[in-house]
């Protein structure tokens, strides 16, 4: 465990807590893509298949349970909570995310570390996480304005992935046995997807203006 990875995990945790806060505090999920949250729930479930078979550390197990639990809570809220579900932008959140699931699964069948059930689902979850934000970014572009909690949510998600890249660079130089190309390449693709959002986020922060994404 190094500081970059710990910081990355904390940013990831904060991003999910910000989202939960927004939903519980405002009893609204406007501007949030349910499809992205469903993709994240699938990412965590398929990545943490070793939750009950391999014990790595208390921290690792606790964080996995928190990520699965909080994302499941967000998906549940957006679909079943009587008040929250009314504010879901159903007609704007139309990204066909099943294609993302299919494409990532096919890719995982070809590109993986070992051809085992757990490894294929792990690679699938890595690829899916890279593109899971797409429905959310599309929704933000369609809804034009970005309310600051949702903006912070995407910001912290980007920070989490950026720190993970620093973590891989650190591990590459510090550990002789470092081969996590699937995570690295997929993580780079994922962070690149955030880059344009970061650019507009920074502009809005610099001009102290409302974050406005070009349609």
């Amino acid at each position: 465990m190094n500081i970059f990875r710990f910081a990355g995990d904390m940013f990831h945790l904060i991003s999910i807590l910000v989202l939960l806060l927004k939903i519980y505090a405002t009893k609204s999920c406007s501007g949030i893509s349910l499809k992205t949250q469903e993709l994240y729930a699938l990412v965590f479930v398929t990545r943490y298949l070793d939750l009950f078979t391999d014990f790595i550390s208390v921290y690792n197990t606790v964080m996995k349970l928190v990520f699965i639990g909080s994302t499941a809570a967000i998906v549940w809220c957006m679909q079943w909570h009587p008040v929250v579900k009314r504010s879901y932008d159903r007609e704007l959140d139309t990204f066909r995310h099943y294609f993302l699931v299919g494409a990532c699964f096919v890719l995982a069948l070809f590109l993986h570390e070992n051809f085992t059930f757990q490894e294929i689902f792990w690679a699938f979850s890595i690829y899916l996480e890279a593109v899971a934000i797409l429905p959310q970014l599309v929704l933000l572009q369609r809804s034009g304005n970005v309310d600051n909690l949702t903006g912070q949510y995407v910001f912290f998600l980007g920070a989490y992935r950026a720190f993970y890249i620093l973590n891989w660079i650190y591990r590459y130089f510090m550990e002789q046995r470092f081969s996590r190309w699937i995570s690295c390449i997929s993580g780079l693709v994922q962070t690149a997807l955030y880059a344009d959002f970061f650019y507009y986020y920074f502009l809005s922060w610099k001009n102290n203006a409302k974050l406005h994404l070009p349609a």
Partner: peptide
């Protein structure tokens, strides 16, 4: 501690 573990990252 984590040698040999494939995926110690979250």
């Amino acid at each position: 501690l984590l040698s040999g573990k494939q995926h110690d990252e979250l």
